[in-house]
Amino acid sequence: MSGYFRDIYTGGKSLLIGLGVTFKAIIKPVVTVQYPREKIDVTPNIRGHIELVRFDENDSRHNCLVCGMCAKNCPCGCLTVEGEKREGVKGKVLTVFDYDFTKCSLCGICVESCSRTALTFSSEYELAGFSRQEFHFDLIKRLEGK
């Protein structure tokens, strides 16, 4: 019989403690933000999709040697890199750098395998589109367009 009343006491007490916890939470400030209007600071180190690195600030040339290591090492096969020999230029010239973001798993192996640091991660994270084609990036165009 005493156990019966002890159960009621301990049970009731634990329930009141629980109510206390949630009551404290009502008073505390809200932790979420209204996303499209407010944004939280996103670290610049985020590994987004890849991007060709600019030669320097004002120069829209890039470092790529067309060695093809990135495309070769990519586990998802989402990179297409092509180059051609041109008169008067040493080595190959990059003509195609297609990047299929729909296949990419964002592992970063391409950036690591690049011997010239011609690739980098973008810190863009708000990517949305209506068709798949919007995520087939032409990185050369993106580089020039910027």
Binding site: T43, N45, I46, R47, L106, C107
Partner: peptide, 27 residues
């Protein structure tokens, strides 16, 4: 969220990190 933010700063991702590399870590 605190953990994911801290990890994101280091690894660059929030869920599927791919942070370790054979022979060490990425960064």
């Amino acid at each position: 969220e605190d953990i994911l933010d801290a990890l994101e700063d280091i690894t660059g991702s929030r869920l599927t990190y791919c942070y370790y590399r054979v022979g060490g870590v990425l960064k």
